[in-house]
Write a protein that binds this DNA or RNA. Structure first.
Length: 669
DNA sequence: TAATGTAGAGTTTTT
DNA sequence: CTCTACATTA
């Protein structure tokens, strides 16, 4: 407690009702949550198993768990839930699968699996309409997050496009159900629907979770909000922490209004503001404050800091995007020498992933080590998707998507023709592919030779499943990958032996993680393979490895990915109209969210902040004159210093849009 | 089944 | 321009 400031202490101690903590960037909100958990356990008499803290990312959950672990006795904390919304939803569904009509061992489709299914459905039900899967997927996700069921979506459809989507939505739901599978959104939606319809189960979970804490509350969508509301019930034992200025996921259904909504849904709501920032120098904060003041606010807050004034914010203008990338690279080297910093102290933030490409080239040229986060994830790798599909198929035989992925991997000479016949047969009888395969007779109109191959695959699956029941799971699974000669198959397809070896290592690594998960959960009793596999789909453990790799590297990431992180020296690149703010945001009139994004970027910086933009940029082939971002104008003059070619001072900015010949000549000189 | 050609798009994406 | 996804061809 003594390490907290008065406001933080107030937030930790307040237990008389629902509490909203408005926590500005860098104001120690994680400390407040972790210490509140400790306080609840040690002083307020809440056993750990009756407390749940919910976050949005695995990373945040992990960090929180770790910090609580340092504050609280392990035994007292037993049963404490610190999880993402999705993981909490999964925990609920594992226990209540019967009530929502699912079998144990249900699969979770990741975004790619869901997309593949939707692609099929789109081709089936709306061919040649020019509609796109991405659009469809996002629409369905938004509907689910808004808790609209297929029939409701259909009756509310405003045009032909939405009508078609709603029809596909229904089919999609049917298919998932038939596959005994759910998607990410279902992990929240299904528990909410269950709680609404089944008081008994709701009360059971309310008894289980007697105090609820929610992090990053501004990012909750409607279904998540509903989950919170239902779990809390009338007891009002709730603490939420959030910052409306850091809401940058509205496009994904997040509703920053949920913060204001709280006041109405919980009349006794107490509000505590955390305004002291422990992260950034004053100039950085003043700049951030000035920028965000351009947005309307429901809750006013002003961040302040006791750290020094700091250096002015530097705004660098370069000739083009190549010069921009190069300048950042050389600035980092330069800066590193002057301030004795490590590479890991630097972060370069940008709006879109493609902006990293040039930067990579330049960093390599300067021999600067870097790490890009948010690139191709471990789970996007083909060998991992194969392995996951095998695991899913073993835990859920009805998972047709997994079946189709691995039925011919490695090659079993089961081609599209055979599969088409099998699928037809299965559909006619309302069976999943595995079940169809197991009970198929001569009536299936499949060539004897193909049938033989299918049978062999079915036998293989059945034998493996049987062994899993009797023996230790992991040895059986490892053996299976050896038996199917997966490594040889990788070898055949890889461009080099080394690549194949790396891929195989990835698979072994995945299995090691699985084993580790089993061991870690020991004190909670045996974890089933089903459980472990679904936790894997929710990513969790694999990210850990990546994190532990804390070698000395410059961090490259999107502004979105930077939320929650901090770095001594931050670069934000591409401060140009149409890029930051992004063109589509200008068109959709969502400048405010872009401004928050900029705000998030600025407030990542502890000591120095450098903003860059290019005077010219290649776009779809041709070179265009850029216009400096309006956000530059919104930063106070007395804290920023303009550098680089063509003096991008206020005058130039005011000529925005009118690139004159003289300005061009200026630049060239 | 692999290899090559071509059209079309081109933000962010916690799970 | 450049990458990806799909289609057609060998």
């Amino acid at each position: 407690m003594s390490q907290l400031n008065p406001r933080q202490r107030e937030a930790v101690k307040y237990l008389d009702g629902p509490l909203l903590v408005l926590a500005g960037a860098g104001s120690g909100k994680t400390s407040v949550i972790t210490r509140k958990i400790a306080h609840l356990i040690e002083y307020a008499g809440f056993p750990g198993r009756h407390i749940a803290a919910v976050t949005f990312t695995n990373k945040a959950a992990r960090e929180m768990k770790e910090r609580v672990g340092r504050l609280v006795d392990r035994r007292a904390a037993r049963g404490l839930i610190v999880a993402t919304f999705h993981n909490l939803g999964l925990t609920i569904l594992r226990e209540e699968h019967d009530a929502v009509g699912y079998h144990p061992g249900f699969s979770i489709f990741d975004a790619e699996d869901a997309r593949a299914l939707l692609r099929d459905l789109l081709a089936q039900h709306a061919p040649d309409t020019g509609l796109e899967v991405g659009d469809l997927q996002m629409t369905l996700s938004n509907w689910k997050n808004a808790m609209l069921l297929p029939d409701q979506a259909l009756s509310r459809a405003r045009d032909a496009r939405e009508e078609r989507f709603a029809v596909i939505y229904q089919h999609y739901a049917d298919y998932l159900k038939a596959y005994n599978a759910l998607d990410f959104d279902d992990l929240i939606l299904l528990p909410v629907l269950l709680f609404r319809n089944n008081t008994e189960i709701l009360e059971k979970w309310q008894r289980r979770i007697r105090y609820l804490l929610v992090d990053e509350y501004q990012d909750t969508n409607l279904s998540q909000y509903e989950m919170v509301r239902l779990l809390v019930g009338h007891r009002q034992c709730l603490t939420v922490v959030g910052d409306d200025d850091q809401s940058i996921y509205a496009w994904r259904g997040a509703r920053p209004e949920n913060l204001a909504q709280l006041k109405e849904d919980f009349p006794g709501l107490k509000i505590v503001k955390l305004e002291q920032n422990y992260r950034s120098m004053r100039r950085i904060l003043s700049t951030a404050n000035a920028l965000i003041a351009n947005n309307p606010h429901v809750f006013e807050k002003a961040l302040w800091s006791e750290l020094g004034v700091g250096d002015p914010i530097r705004i660098l203008r370069t000739r083009n995007e190549e010069a921009e990338a190069e300048r950042i690279a050389s600035e980092i080297l330069d800066h590193k020498l002057k301030s004795h910093a490590e590479f890991r102290d630097f972060a370069v933030l940008y709006r879109g992933n493609h902006q990293a490409r040039l930067l990579e080239i330049k960093l390599q040229a300067y021999q600067i080590p870097y790490r890009i986060s948010g690139g191709t994830s471990f789970f996007a790798k083909n060998e991992i998707k194969d392995a996951m599909a095998y695991l899913r198929l073993l835990t859920n035989p009805d998972d047709d998507t997994a079946f189709l992925r691995v039925v011919n991997v490695p090659r079993r000479e089961i081609g599209p023709r055979t599969l088409e016949q099998l699928t037809g047969y299965a559909r006619q009888r309302g069976l999943s592919l595995t079940r169809a395969l197991n009970e198929m007779g001569a009536d299936a109109h499949i060539q004897a030779r193909s049938l033989e191959k299918l049978r062999r695959f079915a036998d293989f699956l059945n034998r493996t499943c049987e062994r899993l029941e009797r023996e230790d799971t992991l040895p059986v699974i490892r053996q299976m990958f050896t038996d199917i000669e997966y490594q040889e198959w990788l070898q055949q397809n890889a461009s080099s032996t080394k690549q194949a070896q790396r891929q195989m290592d990835n698979v072994w690594y995945l299995l090691d993680s699985l084993e580790q998960m089993n061991r870690n959960e020991d004190d909670e009793g045996e974890q089933t393979l089903e459980d472990a596999v679904s936790r894997l789909v929710l990513r969790d453990i694999m990210e850990r490895q990546e994190e532990e790799d804390d070698s000395d590297k410059v961090q490259l990431m999107t502004l979105h990915a930077s939320k929650g992180l901090e770095f001594p020296h931050v670069f934000v690149m591409g401060l140009e109209e149409e890029l930051l703010p992004h063109r589509s945001s200008i068109e959709q009139d969502s400048i405010e969210e872009e401004r928050r994004l900029m705000y998030v970027g600025i407030t990542r910086a502890q000591r120095t902040l450098t903003l860059t933009y290019a005077a010219q940029r290649k776009q779809y082939g041709d070179v265009i004159e850029t216009i400096p971002s309006r956000f530059i104008d919104e930063m106070p003059d007395d804290h920023v210093k303009h550098e680089g070619i063509g003096k991008a001072d206020k005058e130039t900015n005011q000529r925005r849009g009118k690139a004159t010949l003289s300005a061009l000549l200026d630049d060239l000189s």
